[in-house]
């Protein structure tokens, strides 16, 4: 049970970072932390006590394997996370070039 609580705490750490940090790059890092806490919950969903890695060996039958589907889901979600993070980084670097700062308080063209 404590593992689930720890990954939830990690989620909250990420959320705290997104809300309080002023630096664009730190916001991106906090988002990644949140993402990975959710991946951990997803992997834990498929875990079975004393289960083996889900590589079916025809020679030894009757083994208990962990659920491979959440692992596949997490792998796909990591790919998506890679795309989002790189997109955010690209935008952050472009913003730096325009404003010469990473401080989010300086970005105030859009209000209301």
């Amino acid at each position: 049970m404590s593992v689930y609580i720890l990954s939830f705490v990690l989620f909250l750490v990420g959320l705290y970072g997104v809300i309080t940090r002023r630096n664009l790059i730190k916001i991106v890092i906090s988002l990644s932390i949140m993402e990975f806490s959710i991946f951990m919950i997803l992997v834990l969903v498929g875990y079975i006590d004393n289960g083996l890695a889900p590589i079916v060996d025809p020679a030894s039958g009757g083994q208990i394997y962990v659920d491979p589907l959440p692992q596949a889901m997490v792998l796909t979600a990591i790919v998506i996370g890679l795309a989002t993070t790189s997109m955010l980084m690209a935008i952050a670097i472009r913003l730096y070039r325009k404003y010469k700062t990473f401080d989010i308080r300086e970005l105030k063209n859009l209000r209301g």
Partner: peptide, 20 residues
């Protein structure tokens, strides 16, 4: 595809940084 994509992202970010 993945090798190409990750390399492209890396190169794009490096070029951005070089230019700025």
């Amino acid at each position: 595809e993945v090798a190409g994509a990750i390399l492209t992202i890396f190169l794009a970010l490096v070029i951005f940084k070089e230019e700025s």
